[in-house]
């Protein structure tokens, strides 16, 4: 359905914006390494089913892309552009995010199996793993516009999944309560940022008016 496609494209675009930003500026300043490492954990734990279940070529390719690109970004940040990397401001206590997500996955899952627990863990972790990035944004005060575009596209992706879940509930009679709950949490975390982004974009348009 349309929402799902739009969501996936938005997710894809967010990563392309991020890669473009890093390659063009030859710097990773303003981007939280912690958030990017958490994304590697999110994608690897969620897409373990690549090895066991085949959904579609589209599905597999997207999963491979998300795993590969997240690993690539972390490599860019730690190796290639390491010299310009300042980590002193990226100090969000990530252990609480990981610990909290793990507890949530033990409490809420469809089956008590290794892969299902990890899948649930990845949902909760994804919901909160932008926090170090938002924290860094707040601490440095200003961000390059492009970084905010990245966060916006990333937030939009899960927000678009919400109407997708409504759609699937009515058209396929299918309800994934775990995805919906974690998705709502994720969108809530982004909502403050969305508001600021919206204000900023509006303002910029205002300035550009003749």
């Amino acid at each position: 359905n349309l929402f799902r496609i739009a969501g996936d494209i938005s997710h894809l675009v967010s990563i392309l914006i991020l890669l473009q930003t890093i390659e063009k500026g030859k710097t990773t300043s303003g981007i939280s390494l912690k958030t990017q490492i958490l994304y590697v954990v999110v994608f690897v734990t969620r897409y373990l089913d690549l090895l066991t279940t085949y959904v579609s070529l589209y599905n597999s390719l997207m999963k491979i892309f998300f795993i590969a690109s997240s690993v690539y970004v972390v490599w860019l940040m730690t190796s290639k552009y390491n010299k310009k990397f300042k980590e002193d401001q990226d100090v969000f206590p990530v252990k609480y995010l990981v610990g909290g997500s793990f507890v949530m996955s033990l409490l809420f899952h469809y089956k008590f199996t290794f892969s299902e627990i990890l899948w649930s863990f990845s949902l909760w972790l994804e919901a909160v793993c932008i926090l170090p990035q938002l924290f860094l944004l707040q601490k440095t005060g200003e961000a390059k516009a492009i970084t905010t575009h990245y966060i916006f596209a990333l937030g939009l992706y899960r927000a678009l999944y919400i109407p997708n879940w409504f759609y699937r509930y009515y058209s396929e009679n299918r309800l994934d309560l775990l995805s919906v709950s974690a998705g709502l949490l994720q969108t809530t975390i982004y909502s403050d940022f969305f508001y600021v982004y919206y204000q900023k974009v509006l303002k910029n348009w205002g300035f550009n008016l003749p």
Binding site: R4, D8, H11, V55, S56, Y169, R174, L175, L177, S179
Partner: peptide
């Protein structure tokens, strides 16, 4: 309502 079996979303 069907519960999600198999995760076909990203």
């Amino acid at each position: 309502v069907k519960e999600a079996d198999g995760h076909d979303e990203l």
